[in-house]
């Protein structure tokens, strides 16, 4: 028994803010306590803006980056719009980190890594990418597939360029619709998969993107002989309380805030409401 209130956020201060696209903004915070967040790649926070409310936001920085944490937030609801109006020095409340992690310290170790990201799905996966790059010798080949609607929707453009220039890292990008300046691949994310060579027995795949994306990518990965046990998905739901009480994030019997957002695909294949 504990008298601590699981709903009380701790204060954090906004250090930096940078618009990334028309709707998405990059934020860097530090906890006022001076402590590390103590998260793992794939986990999320409940971010409070006083007077507006609280929303679940995935953590985009790697735990290897000490002293701060970063998020990229799409301006889409009350809290995220209020967040977009904050400036450096402003305070937010933070609860968490909550949820499961990409298994970077477990099954991903020693394996080739295939990351399939659609849109803002790159945001939580970036935490794993930078973790892997900071512990490079622990992993095999790193392949990053990234699809967005238009070139203007690309997140982390500079980092994408850096990753592309890193040995033993492959980055393939696609857009649903190109523009005059775009000379890259055009097509949905699944059109990138035939372009990569993987050794399915030696590969761990991660999928993160909009709800519609999963079933198509899973189908392609099955064609590539990827085992369900070697595929991890990060799923979005309405994780209102983060502590398995409020009911909003439930998919069948699973509270995504506790059992997810990162799931081994084989464990949720039979969960009807999952994919």
């Amino acid at each position: 028994m504990s008298n601590q209130d699981i709903y009380v956020p701790q204060p954090a201060t906004l250090l930096k803010k940078q618009p990334m696209t028309e709707y998405e903004t990059f934020y860097e915070f530090k906890l006022d306590s001076g402590c590390e967040l103590g998260h793992g790649p794939g986990q999320f926070l409940e971010i409070s803006v006083p007077g507006i409310g609280e929303a679940p936001i995935s953590i985009s920085s790697s735990p290897t980056q000490a002293g701060i944490f970063q998020m990229v937030v799409r301006r889409v609801g009350n809290v995220t719009t209020a967040l977009s109006k904050l400036g450096p020095g402003d305070k937010v409340g933070v609860r968490g980190p909550f949820g499961t992690k990409f298994p970077v310290d477990e099954v991903m170790k020693g394996k080739d890594i295939l990351l399939v990201c659609g849109g803002i799905g790159l945001v939580p996966v970036r935490s794993a990418i930078n973790y892997i790059l900071d512990n490079r010798r622990d992993y095999g080949r790193l392949t990053i597939l990234y699809g967005v609607k238009t070139p203007a929707d690309r997140l982390f453009a500079e980092e994408l360029a850096q990753w592309k220039a890193t040995p033993e890292v492959t980055v393939l990008e696609t857009v649903d619709r190109g523009d005059e300046a775009w000379d890259g691949h055009v097509g949905v994310i699944t059109t990138l998969l035939p372009l990569v060579q993987i050794n399915p027995a030696q590969t761990i795949a991660v999928i993160c993107g909009p709800p519609v994306m999963y079933r198509f990518v899973l189908k392609e990965l099955a064609k590539m002989a990827m085992e369900d046990e070697s595929i991890f998905v990060s799923l979005e739901r309405r994780m209102k309380c983060g502590v398995g009480k409020c009911g909003h994030c439930q998919m069948n019997d699973l509270y995504v805030c506790q059992k997810g957002p990162v799931f081994k695909y084989s464990e949720i294949k039979e969960v009807m409401e999952a994919i």
Binding site: D5, Y7, V8, P11, S48, P50, G51, D90, K91, G93
Partner: peptide, 15 residues
């Protein structure tokens, strides 16, 4: 009521 807060972003538990 779960919490009280102020503009400085301080949240306190209400029981």
């Amino acid at each position: 009521d779960l919490l009280e807060f102020n503009a400085k972003g301080e949240y306190t538990s209400v029981t």
